[in-house]
Amino acid sequence: MVGSDVFRAKFFSLYLPLTLYLVFLLFPFYWMLIVSFKPTNDLFDMKFSPFWIQQFTLENYLYLFQNTDFITWLKNTLIVSIVSTILSLVCSIFIGYALARLRFPGSNFLGLGIFLAYLVPPTLLFLPLAQVISELGLNNTYWALILTYPTQLIPFASWLLMGYFRTIPKEIEESAMADGCSRIQILFRMVLPLSVPGLLSAGIFCFTLCWNEFLYALIFMSSGSMKTIPVGTVSDLIKADTLFWGALMASAVLGSFPIAFIYSFFVKHYVSGLTAGAVKG
């Protein structure tokens, strides 16, 4: 009897609201998933319930693999996202650490300036950046994105890391310094190992934004097979006024579900990184 009461209490306070949230947040993905398994003619047949699959098919996935360069897009997206995440992290570690520990003239304005400059929307920024990219001869190479993404990522990532570094007691570093360690040694041997959750959450943040980015990827790197998943999906699966819904959704599913799966391993660190870093910031 008591057990059922506890269950009922937990049902109303936990499982019911959780279910509602999951429906609210995941319904679009459920929708994408079932659309990707439906034959095209069933998609717009109003006789059937749109919430179920009448006739299961893999034709959309086959189409994706046989008629498009999906594997190449995946490879491109991975390379660009991983390298620019690493690059952003490295820069953000230095900047974040400098901001956390060091006072130098103009340090406040530097941060503010970078932050403000990037309030101008990318829809406007991409033209001047295109000129820079083209003058450097980087058009349609991975470098075009690897070098531009960090400009969007570093401000937030270094701010996040700054917060995390501040949580590490200064005294540890001071005593190490008294022992003759250099600042760089301290950073790499002591601070970073203590900051793994912070690094993870900053890394996840950067990776997500790279993975999602569309406009720069379209402008700087979209010729031939040099496309990322979002760009390739939109440019190869929309033909004039006809959208290949099944294949579009198949691509969206393959482009996002694996990432969500990987996240399930990191999400704990992500939260704890945020806790210590941004939150106490």
Binding site: F126, S134, S222, G224, S235, A240
Partner: peptide, 23 residues
């Protein structure tokens, strides 16, 4: 030769960048 075919709404930004910066 290389030929690119883009989703229609994406054509103009790409041309704009090409006009400004080449490509």
């Amino acid at each position: 030769m290389s030929c690119d075919f883009l989703n229609w709404p994406d054509l103009q930004p790409k041309i704009a960048a090409s006009v400004q910066a080449g490509g």
